[in-house]
Design a protein around this nucleic acid. Structure first.
Length: 322
DNA sequence: CGAAAGACCTGAGTGC
DNA sequence: TGCACTCAGGTCTTTC
């Protein structure tokens, strides 16, 4: 379940391979992965073919590749999306259409990525040569789309652009414009976030998951941050003192930075393999999935509660509703 | 208008 | 072996 750290690993991984590359071709194997693409603006493939890729930018869980046309390829991984860079013909290259397969090997014996490959971009890079950018997604909550760009509302850089620089930095894809800055964005406004919290009567976890208030946080890191800050997930957002809100934001940032430091090691220059599941479980989690186990702080038995059709993990002693 | 609920999705895992 | 069922949850849409 890719959240901000996992998406940043993807961004950092694809950046050197896509920046300066030309999109030589596009294969759409499953139209459902284009749910966020507005066909009235043109065909997804035609808007990409021949385009020069200028960089790789991320805000929260949204990732986009600015194009020379002034548009951008927007990528969201959803629940199960992966972006995999491959060299054409590589035996590890999942999903090569019509690939030769030893007789007797059934379709079901293919790697899962083969069956779940939804979109492929053929890239031609001046240094790295021909590359495949494979979009693999089991649950199809993720998507790709070519979107128009608009100036950011605050006139500041739209997201984290890595090393590349250009006029596109202060432009944001239209479908991402409503997403708040994430807490590791240098232009993130803590004051605006606290003010927004003070106006919300809803539970603090729901507020943390509201991407229009603060972006990049999903169910896992929300549970981790609330555990770290010793706040009950149903604590009304407007009931938090300013000091408690500061503590929570510090917890969020600490956890995201720690996860980033761990996830960043999996990148291989030649072979970007971003596996959301394994990368995610590699993190040292203190709350998520630990129901039934002792709290690492006080030893009480951690519990799991139903929340918004998903789970919340907490220590009933450390995280009391006040 | 804000808040909550529902829809979208499929593979892995489980119980019978 | 196979079938029905449950679970995972990010974001957009619909409803209250």
């Amino acid at each position: 379940m890719p959240e901000l750290p996992e998406v940043e690993v993807v961004r950092a991984g694809v950046e050197p391979a896509v920046t300066g590359a030309i999109v030589a071709g596009v294969d759409v194997f499953d139209e459902r992965s284009l749910r966020r693409h507005d066909p009235s603006t043109g065909s997804f493939a035609r808007l990409l073919e021949g385009q020069l890729v200028l960089g790789a930018v991320r805000r929260g869980k949204f990732l986009w590749l600015p194009l020379a046309s002034g548009r951008a390829l927007v990528i969201h991984l959803g629940m199960s999306g992966q972006v995999l860079l491959r060299t054409p013909g590589d035996s590890r290259s999942a999903g090569s259409a019509g690939s030769t397969r030893p007789t007797g090997v059934t379709a079901d014996a293919r790697p899962a990525q083969d069956r779940l490959l939804r979109i492929r971009l053929h890239l031609d890079h001046p240094v790295h040569g021909e590359l495949w950018l494979n979009f693999v997604d089991q649950r199809i909550f993720g998507s790709m789309a070519v979107d128009t760009m608009q100036p950011t509302s605050d006139g500041l850089p739209a997201g984290f652009p890595g090393a590349a620089r250009g006029d596109w930095m202060n432009l944001i894809p239209s479908q991402v414009a409503h997403i708040a800055r994430d807490p590791i964005d240098t232009d993130f406004s803590a004051g605006a976030f606290f003010t927004a919290l003070a106006r919300k009567k809803t539970g603090i976890k729901r507020a943390l998951l509201d991407q229009t208030l603060i972006s990049g946080i999903g169910n896992i890191y929300a549970d981790e941050a609330l555990f770290d800050a010793r706040i009950h997930y149903e604590q009304p957002a407007d009931s938090l003192s300013r000091a408690k809100a500061r503590t929570l934001l510090a917890s969020v940032r600490g956890i995201l930075h720690r996860a980033l430091a761990e996830g960043g090691t999996s990148f291989d220059a030649q072979y970007v393999n971003v596996n959301g599941q394994s990368g995610y479980f590699a993190h040292s989690l203190t709350a998520y999935g630990r129901h039934g186990k002792p709290c690492l702080r006080c030893g009480s038995t951690m519990v799991r509660a139903q929340f918004m059709n998903r789970s919340s993990h907490l220590c009933p002693r450390c995280q009391r509703l006040r």
